[in-house]
Design a protein around this nucleic acid. Sequence first.
RNA 1: GGGGGAAUACCCAAGUGGCCAAAGGGGGCAGACUGUAAAUCUGUUGUCAACGACUUCGAUGGUUCAAAUCCAUCUUCCCCCA
Length: 406
Amino acid sequence: MQTHVLDTLKERGFIAQISHEEALYEYLKTPGVFYIGFDPTADSLHVGHLFQMVLMAHMQKAGHRPIALLGGGTGMVGDPSGRTDMRALMTPDVIAHNVNRFRGQMSILLDFSEGKALVEDNASWLLPLNYIEFLREIGSVFSVNKMLTAEAYKLRLEKGLTFLEFNYQLMQAYDYLELFRRYDCRLQVGGNDQWSNILAGIDLVRRKEQAEVYGLTTNLLVLASGEKMGKSLKGAVWLDGEKTPPFDFYQHWRNSDDEMVELLLKRLTFLPLDEIAALCAEEGAALNEAKRTLAFELTKMVHGEATAKEAEATAKALFTGAGSTENMDTYRLKDADVGQTLLDVLTEAGLFPSKSEGRRLINQGGVQFNGERVDDPFMALEKDLFDAGEAIVRRGKKVHLKLLLP
RNA sequence: GGGGGAAUACCCAAGUGGCCAAAGGGGGCAGACUGUAAAUCUGUUGUCAACGACUUCGAUGGUUCAAAUCCAUCUUCCCCCA
C-alpha cells in the first residue's frame, strides 16, 4: 500500500500542528481539496514560498487538488499576526500585478492541466463584499473576546492594532468558507504563524455550514540561529531569474548551514529519504556533497536542468579554478572606462555600492584583480591588465565579476 | 474631546547648545581561521575630488557666532482620562 501523504509530510518534516488528525487521515484517503494562501507582498515568490509549493506538489501527487489562494483581497488589509508594526498598505494595482506574477510561478511545481490545481484570488469575492451584509453574516459569529486572547494578537495589543488589521482574521476565515462552498475545500494549510487564522476559518465553516473541515500548519523554515530563511547577501532570494540570477540562487543553497542541509533536502526536494539520509550521513567537509546536491536539485526545479548545470559549472570554475567562467556575471567596459581607476569602474559596474564602500573594501584587502589582491583603489585599468580581453575581479570570497574590454 | 509622551543612520537605541557623521547593541560587509559551513577573533559600516569638504537626527520656518539638542507651526505614532 502506498504511503499516506500525511505520513510522507511528517517524515519529511513539514508538519507542525494538525487540527483533527484522525479525521484528516480519513479525509485524505480519497482525493480531497486543500488550499494555501499566499500574500502578494512582492512581485515574485521567494524561497520561503517554495517550501509551501513543494508541499502542494506532494499533495497533488497523492491525488489531491491544490488551490493556491492569492491574497489579492487580504493583501489590501495586511496580516498583523506576529508582527510588531503595521504592514505598509499596498495599492490595488500593485497587488493585482503581483498576483499575476505569482500565478505564473506557481506552475513551476504544480500541474494546472484539467483543473488538477487552481489559482484563485480572493479579491474576486472580498472586494465586492457589502460591509453591512458581511458584518451580519460573518461578523456576528466571531467573538472579540476570543480573538483578543489569541497569541497572535498579544504583541499587537501592547503596540497598538488598528481595526483594519483586526479584520484580517475574519477575511481569512471567510476565504475558507468561500472555498468550501465553491470547491468543497476541506483543508487549509499554512505556516505555523497562521494557526489561529486557520482555526478561525474552521470554526466559521462549522458554524455556517455545519461541516467539519481541517487545518494543518507547517514548521516555518528557520535557520539554526532562528533567523528566517530566504534572505541572503542581496536580500530575499527570489524564484524569478531576473531578480535573483540562477547562479546566485544556486549559491544560496550551496552555502547552507551544515545543520540545515538535511532539513532542506527533505523539505524542498523530492529526493527519496534514504538517498538524503545517505548524503547527510557524512560529516564535516564531506557534507559539501549534500549541499551541492541540494543546490543543484533546487536550481533544476526552478530554472531547469540546463541552467542548473551551468550554475554548477560556474561555481566549480570560481571556487576550484577548474571549469569555465562562461556564466559568470560580466561587465563590459565602455570605451571611456579604459584607463580609469579601478574604483570608479567597479562602482559603475555595481560591484561596489558606493565609492566609499569600494575604498573600504580595497583598503581592507577584500578585492582581488586576476587573483592578485588590490591595494590601490586608484589603480588605472589599462588594456595590458587584461588577458585575452578579459579580467576577473573578486570581491570578498564569493562575489566574482568578469570584466571585458570594449 | 482633554492631558501627557515619542519621532535619531538598515533595525533597536543613547545623545537634550559647541568635544556629534552622532555612544552601544543587532544586522551587513571585509580580514584571519575553515570546508564556498557554523562558531570565534579583528576591522569596518553617510557621501565625495578624503588628514579636508559636503549632506544627515519626522517636516517647515526661526533664535544663536554655533542646533540632533532651544522656540513656533505642521505631520505621524503611543499612553492616560472622557
